[in-house]
């Protein structure tokens, strides 16, 4: 399999701060890699290096088969970048912005204009096309910014936190757009702090913390790393708790945890849905009124917590840089 992005031992230090501390990545053509990490993990730094904006202290980076450090000029026509904060001209209209970027990608006037109209339509900005960007909402800017990265449908696309600041609806739209890009053959590297987003979009997730990749794999692989599923039953009355406890113990073969306050019984299970079905059947036989029953798979939140020792969203953790390395080893 050919790789659209290949990174080896990328290092970038800012004085004491190790923004990147030796990152390796390989993104097969036509797939999505999500760099998942908390604030200050080094995601933007990695994107900036791969898009020729920043030179690393050490390491190697290939994009679309071209050495980024040796031949940045040959990489630029092949990439699209939508940075962390929307970088469009506020004093121009949405259309003027897109036409300008099209022209800078060396499209002729007619093509650039046509493409701009297409993108404005695609991103739901047609109505605002002739308004200056200054009057746009944050989400509209974000979408315009992404559109600007796509004027020439580049083979490799870098999206730095593409859905930060978008409402749920706009986020779903953005996900759809990204899925379409990939379906059309583009390779996408995106960064995100949202576990759900990585789960939903990415073929591979690289969890980054303190400038290092501390885990990599599909969402399922990452979840599997921290164990199986949990079966959870909520019953109607306190009297039914012991029965439920007995049933779950016998189905799973291990001792359930009982929360009397919420009348909730939980137990780890190895057989997933089969255990769920079995449990429901047996509880019905015992005439237990079940208010709720669920099979919980570990979330990426759990993964993150387990891997890094801190939650994904808990901003720039004040932990020393060494912690991540210890956890991952």
């Amino acid at each position: 399999m050919t790789h659209a992005i290949e990174v080896e031992g990328l290092v970038k230090h800012y004085g004491e701060v190790k923004a990147l501390d030796g990152i390796d990545l390989a993104v097969p053509e036509g797939t999505v890699l999500a760099l998942l990490g908390p604030n200050g993990a080094g995601k933007t730094t990695a994107v900036r290096i791969l898009t020729t904006l920043l030179r690393p202290d050490a390491g190697r980076a290939m994009v679309a088969g071209i050495d980024v450090l040796a031949e940045p000029a040959r990489v630029r026509p092949l990439i699209g970048l939508s940075g962390q904060s929307a970088a469009v001209d506020e004093r121009l209209t949405g259309r003027e912005n897109l036409v300008m970027f099209g022209r800078l990608y060396r499209l002729d006037k007619a093509t650039a204009t046509g493409r701009a109209a297409e993108l404005l339509e695609r991103f739901g900005l047609s109505d605002a096309a002739t308004r200056v960007v200054q009057t746009y909402s944050g989400g509209m800017r974000r979408r315009l910014d992404l559109a600007a990265a796509l004027v020439v449908s580049p083979p490799v696309i870098f999206l730095d936190e593409p859905t930060t600041g978008l409402d749920p609806r706009a986020r779903a739209d953005m996900w759809e757009v990204i899925a379409e890009l990939v379906a059309a053959g583009s390779t996408v590297l995106l960064t995100t702090q949202y576990l759900e987003e990585a789960d939903r979009l990415a073929d591979t997730i690289a969890v980054v913390d303190h400038g290092r990749v501390i885990a990599e794999g599909t969402a399922d692989e990452l979840k599997a790393r921290i164990g199986g599923e949990t079966l959870e039953v909520v019953v109607a009355t306190d009297d039914e708790l012991p029965v439920a406890q007995k049933v779950l113990a016998s189905v799973s073969g291990s001792e359930p945890v009982v929360d009397r306050h919420t009348r909730r019984v939980q137990v780890p299970v190895g057989t997933g849905v089969a255990a769920l079905v079995e449990t429901v059947r047996r509880l019905a036989d015992e005439q237990v009124t079940v208010l709720d029953v669920a099979l919980h798979r570990p979330t990426l939140d759990d993964v993150f917590l387990t891997l890094t020792g801190h939650a994904a969203e808990d901003a720039d953790s004040s932990q020393p840089a060494g912690t991540a390395a210890e956890v991952s080893s």
């Binding site: 900036r48 020729t52 630029r76 970088a87 001209d89 800078l104 060396r106």
Partner: peptide, 17 residues
């Protein structure tokens, strides 16, 4: 400061443009 220069620098345009 608006990040526009970064975006321009990522485009395949003349370094002087």
């Amino acid at each position: 400061s608006k990040g526009l220069v970064d975006r321009f620098r990522s485009l395949p345009i003349a370094r002087s443009a």
